[in-house]
Amino acid sequence: MTTTTDLTGWTGLQFFGRTTASVSHELKNALAIIKENAGLLNDYLLMAEKGTPLKPERLKIVADRIDQQTRRADTLIKHLNRFGHSIDEPLTTVDLNEIVSLLAALTQREVSMKQATLQLAMGESPMTVKTAPFWLLTFLGHCMTFSLKVLGPEKVLHLQAEKVEDGTRILFSPLSGLQGAGQEDFPGEAEMALLKSLDAACHIDPDAGTLLVNLTNR
C-alpha cells in the first residue's frame, strides 16, 4: 500500500517531470526556429555567391526572429530555473503573486494545448505567505489541469491571488463545466495528501463555477 508520504513524493516528482518535459518541448520549438533562421542566412549567402543580391529587409526579418526566439528561450529557462529552485527550502516565505505568475508561465503550454486563454489578476504585492513553494506549485498545477477540464465554452480561465481575513487564497474561475460530470475526481487522494502537507484547503463550488485554494497564515 502507498503511504501518504510516498504518494506526495510521487505526485511531486510526476509534476516536476511533466513540467520539465513541457518547457523543454517549448524550448525545442524556439531552438528549431533559431536553427532554421540561421540556415536561411546560409541560404541567402549561397544565393549571394551565385549573384543574387542580399536584401537588407530580409536580413532584418531573420535577425528579428532570432532575437525574439532567443528571448523566448531565455524566458523559458528562467521559469524552469525558478521552478527548480522552488524545492530549495522545505518551508519559506514567498510572494503568492510570484507563485501564481510562475504557475501561469509553467502551464502556458498546457493552457494553449486546450485552446484556452489564461487571465491573471494579481492582488496586492507583495502578498507574502509562508509555504512549501514546490508543493504549492504541484497542487496548483493539479488545480490548473482540473480547471482546464471543466472550463466553460468561452475557454477563458481566470486565475487570481488575493488576501482574505485569515490568510490568502487562489481562485480558478469560471468553471461552468463543474455542473456536469467529472468534478467527483477532484481533489483525489494525491491532492488531499498535498493539501494536508500544505495545511491548505480546497473548496469547489459548482453553482458559482469556482475552485478556491485557501492558504492559512503559518
Binding site: 520549438n29 526556429i33 532554421e36 533562421n37 536561411l40 541560404d43 526572429r65 525574439q68 526566439q69
Partner: peptide, 12 residues
C-alpha cells in the same frame, strides 16, 4: 502552430 517556424521553413 508556430507561425515563425512556418514562415522560415516555407521560405527554405
Amino acid at each position: 502552430d508556430e507561425t515563425d517556424f512556418l514562415e522560415v521553413m516555407s521560405e527554405r
